[in-house]
Write a protein that binds this DNA or RNA. Structure first.
Lengths: 333, 333
DNA sequence: CTGAAAGCGCTTACAG
DNA sequence: CTGAAAGCGCTTACAG
């Protein structure tokens, strides 16, 4: 067992525990001489402060809670990488909370997070309901825990900082691309549930469509492949379509598959574009035109922003917008 | 702030703190009468034990470390769902450790995990090097922390429990399917780095090929799409291929794309199969035949197994093998 | 710049 | 079945 305590270090370095503690946490408050001696002993003994004792005494945990919906969406995994890398740099541990769909136990999770006494919270979710936003506000106001929204935002509020791209603009740009190709019947394929970022994508789409004097068509489908396949087939029977902007790559690919089954050629008959630039887009044939979202960076930047908040540093821009780009591939002209 | 402590509860319930503690942790040691009274007060006050104080006093954290390579592989995200669901049932928190490729800081992470005093470790990684295995053995022997290998195993050792499917058998079965179709030049597309489970897949492949009196061809490529695309093109110039078993769905899909570029028809000219049954397999055209790996279950079962080990319960089978199945789709005859 | 001491909020033998 | 008390391993005013 790792029995080495701060006391062992103090004994060996011939100082008090207080000094050992300071050498670790406030090195500038210790004379360079003794500091070095202490640090050497720490090294020699392989001493590592007990996280519980430290947490109990300091009321700080150097732990952040990462709250995610379910992890099955590829983008979240990549975001986690960005978060984890930066967390390591700043020596924070990550406590993972996965929200199941029902979210019945929201109150329970709140309590858990409080009990864990995390220093900060990263909230990764496309969807932020008013309830959830209020929940996060409570976390911040009542418990003084900084919160950052990662890859999402809440409309008309900037009291909780967020890191994201300009989804409205991105959607406008992709849609505009299809308009410029001369497409007349451009559909947006969005999701049934109300996702905040998808709302933004819809607005961007609408802006481009209206600007071009075309008629908007928003089709809401499920994220699940088997469900939306059925849905798409119906569409081909009843609608004229020559352009599609899907809110996710996988939905776009799924749409292309159905289009092909209906003997529609891509991109000559229909232009298709997606969002995220995942492996789905790259592996599809034709490869999918899409908005490239810097997912890793969004994770990394939001973790960095959170560290600033946890250190009470001044944060000037509560809403960080990262750059995106449009990647043209074979699914459009 | 959440100022409610065990002391507040004791005061209100007119008992000592010891009794409150027992009512929570060893309810059977408290008279039903008082127990109920205490629990009611806990409920009323919304009391939640401070995790640090508890951890410090009990030397138990009710936290498990989940060590994962990088999260970008879809399968791991799904496994995390299984882990998280079961963890919640048994009231364990999840501390996430993401290993970067280099793993230079392995020793550092070891120390971190020790300092965090986790009660158990779940090790998710296709690859287990001798170094890493030794590291895990130390965790278990020196620090008495139970460890479970999730979706991997270490050959010829069963001292660290594992949960997985029979990859050798699965690979044998897929390969056998291609053999039964009459394919003569069946390649296995595996990865450059030595992944334990991929070794097992290779053995299964070899067994089926040898049994059929065919010549084995194992091609090792990179997991990255742009790299292996190049690689595959070369193969078409230099080899006769009529069957391919890839160690991952995405590699199989990537191979199909290159095959099509080389004017090869699937499945008439080449049968292709993959592993995992991810969304890549479902979205591909033709849809990919593959081994369905019960990824969620592997996560859930290994977490459950870990809880048993942490409670010192008897564990009879150190190597849990879950069922897999073969899903035939359009990429094979 | 350093040390002695209190205290963080629990758990757990030890008595009774 | 219950309570008093020690102790888990740190941090942090407070003195000096």
């Amino acid at each position: 067992m790792n029995k080495i305590t701060i006391y062992d270090v103090a004994l060996r370095a011939k100082v008090s525990l207080a000094t050992v503690s300071r050498a670790i946490n406030n090195p500038e408050k210790v004379k360079p001489d003794t500091r070095e001696r202490v640090l050497r002993v720490i090294e020699d003994l392989g001493y590592k402060p007990n996280a519980f004792a430290r947490g109990l005494a300091s009321r700080k945990s150097t732990t952040v809670a990462v709250i995610v919906p379910d992890m099955s969406r590829a983008s979240i995994a990549e975001m986690m990488n960005g978060i984890a890398d930066i967390a390591r740099v700043y020596k924070y541990s990550i406590l993972l909370y996965i929200l199941d769909q029902e979210e019945l136990n929201q109150e329970e999770i709140l309590k858990e997070i409080i009990a864990a006494q995390v220093d900060g919270i990263l909230y990764l979710n496309d969807e932020v309901t008013p309830d959830q936003y209020e929940f996060l506000q409570r976390m911040r106001d009542e418990y003084r825990i900084p919160v950052v929204l990662t890859n999402t935002m809440y409309p008309d509020h900037d009291d909780i900082p967020s890191v994201s791209i300009d989804y409205e603009k991105a959607a406008y740009e992709v849609t505009k691309k299809l308009v410029d190709e001369g497409r007349q019947n451009i559909f947006m394929v969005s999701t049934v549930r109300k996702y905040m970022v998808n709302d933004l994508k819809e607005s961007g789409y609408l802006r481009a469509i209206e600007e071009a004097g075309l008629t908007p068509h928003i089709m809401r489908t499920s994220g699940r492949v088997n469900v939306n396949t059925e849905h798409f087939h119906e569409y081909f029977r009843n609608h004229k379509v020559d352009g599609v902007v899907a809110v996710r790559d996988s939905i776009a690919v799924s749409f292309m598959n159905v289009a092909r089954q209906n003997h529609v050629k891509i991109p000559s008959d229909i232009s298709v574009a997606g969002f995220q630039n995942t492996k789905y887009a790259i592996l599809a044939r034709p490869a999918l035109t899409c908005v490239d979202v810097p997912i890793y960076d969004i994770g990394a930047v939001s973790m960095r922003l959170l560290t600033k908040l946890m250190n009470q540093e001044e944060v000037t821009t509560p809403e960080v917008i990262l750059d995106h780009s449009l990647i043209a591939r074979g699914s459009t002209l």
